[in-house]
Design a protein around this nucleic acid. Structure first.
Length: 358
DNA sequence: AATCCGGGGAC
DNA sequence: GTCCCAGGATT
């Protein structure tokens, strides 16, 4: 009588555990119960695929093996290891939280959801993941995978990004994890199922351990769930970038810690305004940002790049410094750097694409 | 409630 | 090209 299952006694509570123990991927952070390692992995995994995280996790743990090592490191070093992973606020919050744990908490990690969620960069998902996996706390997780699995298994026809629906999904996840003997394994199994089997497009229902209990599959509507809200179109900007070379060095600036690409170094430049030539835009931006006048030389590179909520085309020009001492108006720091120093500094991906040409 | 915040891989 | 990923902070 499939309709009589409640979340607290639902068969998937143990079916997924058995499936997970035989079919789960062997991931680096699954070989430990060190709360620090699990916390680092969960932070990297926010909005980021497992395969992309693996090399970053290995390098991060080698560079900062303990919360004390991370707390004592400079933010610039942390950002360099994080370079290319995106969402750089994660790295800064991880660093800040490590200092709170190392100093304020004398190296003691929180052991409950509330304690973890009080740390910067730790929300309800990460708090639930770390406490359930590292400490066997019966806390739920709700990520993109779990949302998809639950909307299908329980045939939830409303968009899971809607606040009310999301609240209902949290309650569902909490009921499933309630008094579970292995909450961490169960939570990982839910996510693993979403990543491996209950795929966004063309879910692999014939191999799914929840096949018999999935309401969407029983109705044949698994391909139509979850329903998503309409996406907004993203704007495109033309950006001009100056590679100002003087005695073998290039002028670069460090972006402010808050906002886009916070704390990363970049080559100066800015948006081309309507009706403006690339040369005019570059000269205006350099005057505004650095208080200098430049001569714009040849076009070195054109780079297309997509950010989370807009797209850009970078037009990179060789430039000469004509007059004015560079002063940081929007940057926190300026510096003349030789190409051999670039490997020590953290740059945005869009800049890394043209660095080899310099 | 809506927006901001990267980058990559599958399609 | 589109979609969306082991989300969180800010306004």
């Amino acid at each position: 009588m499939k309709g009589f299952y409640t979340p607290r006694n639902h068969p998937i509570r143990w079916l997924l555990i058995h499936w997970f123990r035989t079919d789960a991927r062997d991931l680096p952070w699954r070989r430990t119960r060190d709360p620090y390692a699990i916390w680092v992995s969960e932070t990297m995994l926010q909005q980021t695929r497992v395969e992309q995280c693996i090399p970053y996790f290995e390098r991060f743990m080698a560079a900062f093996p303990t919360v004390h090592a991370l707390a004592e490191a400079t933010l610039d070093r942390v950002l360099k290891v994080w370079e290319g992973l995106g969402y750089y606020t994660r790295a800064r919050n991880l660093h800040r939280a490590a200092q709170i744990i190392a100093h304020d908490r004398h190296g003691n990690f929180p052991r409950d959801v509330e304690g973890w969620q009080a740390l910067p960069g730790v929300g309800r998902y990460t708090a639930g993941a770390v406490t359930s996996i590292a400490f066997d706390v019966c806390a739920p997780v709700l990520d993109g995978n779990v949302k998809r699995v639950l909307t299908r298994v329980f045939n939830i026809a409303e968009p899971p990004d809607d606040a009310r629906v999301e609240q209902r999904l949290w309650e569902l996840a909490a009921s499933l994890a309630s008094r579970h003997p292995h909450p961490g394994e169960f939570n990982q199994a839910l996510m693993e199922l979403g990543a491996q089997t209950c795929l966004p497009a063309a879910p692999r229902c014939p191999t799914c351990p929840a096949w018999h209990y999935c309401k969407a599959r029983l109705l044949g509507i698994q391909d139509h769930l979850p329903v998503s809200k309409p996406k907004k179109s993203v704007p495109h900007y033309d950006i001009v970038v100056a590679a100002i070379k003087k005695r073998g060095r290039y002028l670069i600036g460090k972006r402010p810690l808050s906002g886009l690409l916070g704390g990363l170094w970049e080559f100066p430049g800015g948006k081309v305004q309507p009706g403006e030539s690339h040369e005019q835009a570059l000269q205006r931006e350099l005057k505004e940002e650095l208080g200098i006048t430049i001569k714009v030389g040849k076009l070195l590179a054109v780079v297309n790049h997509a950010y989370s909520h807009f797209k850009v085309t970078l037009h990179v020009f060789q430039c000469c410094h004509l007059s004015g001492k560079p002063r940081p108006n929007i940057h926190t720091e300026l510096r003349w750097a030789a190409p051999r120093e670039f490997s020590e500094l953290a740059f945005p991906k869009a800049n890394l694409k043209f660095l080899p040409l310099l």
